[in-house]
Design a protein around this nucleic acid. Structure first.
Lengths: 387, 387
DNA sequence: TCACTTTGTCCATCGACTGGACGAAGTGGT
DNA sequence: ACCACTTCGTCCAGTCGATGGACAAAGTGA
């Protein structure tokens, strides 16, 4: 039973500082007086806090705004390039990384092929990637966020297991933190994607959302009450290996009929190859659905339906209304998405299902990188995404 | 985007007060100095806070403890009867309620038959129940907790719908709070049960747990990160109406093959009646399993297996290791429980499933009442169970 | 008996929020 | 051009509450 920590004066200060930063961040150019009104703090306290933030450079004054019958306010804004964050996406083929600013905008990107490296060699590759990303950066680095496949314990920064890289209980967070001297956060790739969707949602930010990445594997990231939820063993969201078909194909996890063996990329491509008699990647299936080919539509529908059933179970369990789909398989487009929605809606309790919004995320290519960085940005903004 | 509230000195004070109360509550007879060591607060602050708590009567001194080489410490203990809470269980047949102390011990119970009342008449029955429970109580009443079937929004205290009582968007929390002048918390019965399991777990308290009530309906209560999780529409845990069998029987919700139609009490009794040719209630099935009757064992196994599959999905989604089963159907005993465990373990991802602890709760009869009260006890102890 | 510990309280100090006052800088009316 | 009024940002005294050191009370062990 973890006792919560005591409260001190410094903590109230930190809390209020973050409250001010976040208000300025979310509500754009805004005066001190308006911040005070929004937060409930006194003008005095806000002024005091802002003075510190100006010194740190996180916030800057951008001139006076229109008067409303009195002295014109000095508008404040978060200086989005005053701090940098690095986000990494340790994919199966490539390790990619970007330098990202406080708005989640990507400033520079480097990508290195994995080329079969694993174990310590893969760790070296992470170092190489970071060295190249950090060369010549000027603004202070808030930290490094890492998104990786596999089971990850974000609290300790340990990768419990990542099969393709042959990592097992690797304390990557500590290793990288020691080398670069900044905070490091490690998260599962699906979880990172969920963080990106949540953090950078802007006005439309909602406290609960599920992001589901459908690629080779199927994984979900859960944002509950405004924070990433990892469960007791860091495995929350690992829906890809829930059995959905007792007579299904054998999965790489050893069981039969996991969701991944029906809705995953590999399964789709395998079925497509069988249907066409030749080789067929996801793009080919997509093209065929656009052409209206029955075999392709059937594949898309089946894959989408299986995912939809899994989503129905999630909705029933958690009653979360915002579900975002990400990853390569989303390329299958409308027929696939329609099947997902149909099954999800028809199998979950009606009053719950009616309110659900299932959509495809906008920036599938770099969500993981942005999500990894989101962890650090969020900390600066006081969103406290983990725990 | 709900802005968090500002931090003030009073809040730090309240925070630390609760921290002290909770420490004394959890760690039994304990000295001020030990509290200081446990919490990290200074002895000065602890003394100051404790003085206030002694004045309020929440904490009392119970004499000196053994010395460890210096002045003997004055031991403190939470005076468990210094505050009372009322918990109600608005069941289908009876409205039951108890006066409960700070340890969740039941001091007095009243039960009234519903006898077909619904709508406003049912609200009147709630009043009658409360009036009888409160008559003659001496210690200050912290508040009233209400557990009820149906969809409940705990934040507003509104019952969104409870079919059997014909309640729809009924602000029961406000109504009762206005009449009795104390805080009122309303929760779904499954959620209340989960709160009871969490709050009164003592040393074994873990931050995440799922309590599943299997009776006429099937519902789960989710405790995530030490707080009840209700989802966006207060429907989190409503797993009873997730479709598990497309060819299944028609459910009272209108769909086919909901979990409830396979694993619920009604379904079990119906199958038993068919098997025996006569009437058979749950007790009869239980007795028959003890006798080793094949038909009864088959029924128990099927019902347990269906529940197990639903639990596997929950484990995959949330990776929660503590699962507590409650409600009348748990009476089916070992054969049923074995089936639940077998299916849950065999269908969830191995590393997740291995750590799962599925057990039957201890006090099935009054969990709802105790859980309803837990909401208020927890508030006093600073556990902040909701939100 | 004495040196040493531990406990609980007292006191001076400090960090941080509060509320009122004030000058600066606007607006609008005459 | 002048004046009353408003709003903004800052300054200052006041207060709340945590902190750390000092101290008496009450133990232990040599």
């Amino acid at each position: 039973m973890a006792l919560p920590t005591k409260a001190t004066h410094q903590q109230t200060r930190v809390h209020n500082e973050r409250l001010v930063v976040r208000t300025v961040y979310d509500l754009g150019p805004i005066s001190r007086a308006d911040v005070a009104r929004q937060t409930g703090l006194t003008r005095t306290t806000v002024s005091d806090v802002v003075t510190g933030l100006l010194d740190d450079g996180v916030v800057k004054e951008i001139g006076r705004g229109p008067s409303s019958g009195g002295k014109a306010p000095i508008l404040l804004e978060v200086d989005q390039d005053s701090r940098l964050v690095v986000g990494l996406d340790l994919g199966e083929e490539h390790f990619a990384g970007s330098v990202v600013n406080l708005r989640g905008e990507i400033r520079r990107t480097v990508e290195l092929p994995v080329a079969g490296r694993d174990g310590d060699d893969a760790v070296e590759l992470v170092f190489a990637l970071l060295d190249r990303l950090l060369a010549g950066t000027t603004a202070p680095l808030l930290g490094i966020g890492i998104g990786t496949p596999g089971l990850v314990d974000s609290r300790t920064g340990t990768i419990r297991r990542a099969v393709n890289l042959d990592w097992r209980d690797l304390p990557l967070g500590t290793i990288v933190a020691d080398r670069y001297g900044v905070p490091v956060n490690v998260a599962n790739d699906s979880q990172a994607a969920a963080l990106a969707e949540y953090t950078y949602a802007g006005e439309g930010r909602v406290p609960n959302l599920i992001a589901i990445r459908v690629g080779r594997g199927v994984g979900a990231g859960l944002i509950l009450r405004g924070a990433l939820f990892q469960g007791d063993g860091s495995g929350a969201g690992e829906i890809g290996h829930t059995v959905v078909d007792d007579q299904g194909a054998v999965c790489r996890c050893g069981r039969r009929g996991c969701l991944e063996t029906v809705a995953g990329m590999r399964a789709i491509e395998a079925r497509a190859a069988a249907a066409t008699g030749g080789d067929a990647d996801l793009g080919a299936v997509r093209a065929a659905t656009v052409e209206g080919e029955p075999w392709a539509l059937a594949i898309a529908d089946d894959a989408g339906a299986a995912l939809g059933r899994a989503i129905a179970a999630l909705i029933g369990a958690l009653d979360i209304q915002r579900i975002v789909l990400l990853g390569p398989v989303t390329a299958l487009g409308e027929p696939w998405l329609a099947a997902v929605r149909r099954e999800a809606r028809s199998r979950a309790l009606a009053p719950l299902a009616d309110e659900v919004d299932i959509s495809v995320g906008r920036q599938p290519s770099n969500v993981v990188i942005r999500g990894a960085s989101a962890l650090l940005v969020a900390r600066e903004l006081g969103l406290s995404l983990v725990r």
